[in-house]
């Protein structure tokens, strides 16, 4: 992965965040991981003070998104990111416990790039995250500006 790409991790459960980070690191990905535990904080960061997302013009981002957040719904964040002219090319990986087919369909319709269900079985979980890390290391992320 080209160096400037930073990973925005929006995950309210700190345990999950820790496990995800650990396993991504184990797969050899060394990019910046910026964790957020609430949707609001993540939105503030993504869209900046003016709410336009202009701050991130030209920077390459990758968003790891949990759908079950305490303050905002992950679906809303996904929608806003994909509607924003600067952020809409940013890849969004939804990583959540929800395996409802309706929900999955909805996410893809809104422009989510990858949807992963968190397996409870830790082996599978660790595996999934490591493979995701491998995926990150080969994926090409465009700069957010257009």
């Amino acid at each position: 992965m080209s160096n400037p790409v930073s990973i925005i991790m929006i995950e309210d459960d700190e345990g999950h965040a820790r496990l995800i980070e650990r396993n991504i690191r184990r797969s050899g990905v060394n990019n910046d991981i910026i964790p957020f535990t609430s949707g609001t904080a993540a939105l503030n960061y993504l869209f900046g003070k003016d709410g336009t997302g202009l701050d991130h013009k030209g920077s390459a981002l990758l968003i790891l998104l949990d759908l079950n957040l305490p303050d905002t719904s992950g679906i809303d964040i996904l929608k806003r990111v994909k509607e924003n002219q600067y952020l809409k090319t940013t890849p969004v990986v939804v990583l959540t416990t929800t395996d409802d087919s309706q929900e999955i369909k909805r996410c893809y319709e809104l422009g989510c790039n990858v949807y992963i269900t968190k397996p409870v079985n830790y082996e599978s979980f660790a595996n999934a995250i490591r493979q995701l890390g491998l995926f990150f290391s080969v994926i090409q992320v465009p700069p957010a500006a257009t």
Partner: peptide
């Protein structure tokens, strides 16, 4: 399910 993922994960850790 969410806490269960943690319990399982950290148990493995």
């Amino acid at each position: 399910r969410s806490p269960l993922v943690n319990i399982m994960g950290f148990t493995s850790e």
